[in-house]
Design a protein around this nucleic acid. Structure first.
Length: 202
DNA sequence: AGCACGATGCTCT
DNA sequence: GAGCATCGTGCTT
């Protein structure tokens, strides 16, 4: 097996909307109990700066948001609804709080383990994905550019711009306009990455 | 197939 | 004390 190569920090130190779209088709990797699990990222959302009232950073630098103010390429993992963990990648320059929420993936390595962790259910959903890969607060702040952390992202399948579906972010019911309707959610077809054979098998 | 609701605890006001 | 970048269940159509 060829050595794991994580996406470089330069990948993340760009405008968040660009990073959010380019993360589609990449492979999210996780070493859990010594076993490698991975999935292709198929949905993301951008959260950009203190002015974005849908972004946690609207409250400024707090204990929770401090990671978003740090260098790009790190994981911002937070807890919500009393039971769910969310995985984000920090973007842009250090000092500017922004991140991309990873919202859905298609399992490709360790599928049986991931599926078992999900009790047979899917991994299309931000909390479903972290549950399937065993991602929690212990990983908040880890460097995604370092494969030694057991959590990293590498190149996957190319996704052309025309295959990206753009829509408003979800779950922001009480966020004021224009932020509530910003088209900062990006999706691509889950089956587009798989071979014909793999598609037939499902 | 779609919608309403309860779970459950941390973060910020 | 209110609200939350959600999920699974159970009930209705």
């Amino acid at each position: 097996m060829k050595p794991a190569t994580s996406l470089p920090r330069d990948f993340y130190s760009r405008p968040t909307l660009q990073v959010a779209q380019q993360l589609l088709g990449t492979r999210l990797n996780r070493i859990l109990d010594g076993v490698r699990l991975a999935g292709i990222i198929i949905e993301t959302e951008a959260y950009i700066g203190e002015d974005d009232l849908g972004c946690h950073a609207k409250a400024g630098k707090t204990k929770r948001t401090v990671i978003m103010y740090g260098p790009p390429g790190h994981a911002y993992v937070y807890f919500t609804y009393g039971m769910h963990w969310m995985l984000n990648t920090v973007t842009e320059r250090e000092g500017f709080p922004a991140a991309v929420l990873i919202r859905a993936m298609e399992p490709v390595i360790g599928i049986n383990i991931i599926t078992a962790r999900r009790n047979g259910r899917d991994t299309a959903g931000p909390a479903k994905l972290t549950n399937g890969l065993g991602i929690d607060g212990c990983l908040n702040g880890v460097d995604l550019c370092d494969t030694e952390t057991g959590l990293w992202i590498e190149e996957g399948f190319p996704v052309s711009v025309k295959d990206i579906i753009t829509s408003p972010r979800v779950g922001l019911e009480n966020v004021p306009e224009p932020w509530k309707s910003k088209p900062w959610r990006f999706r691509c077809s889950p089956s587009g990455f798989l071979t014909k054979e793999e598609n037939l098998r499902r």
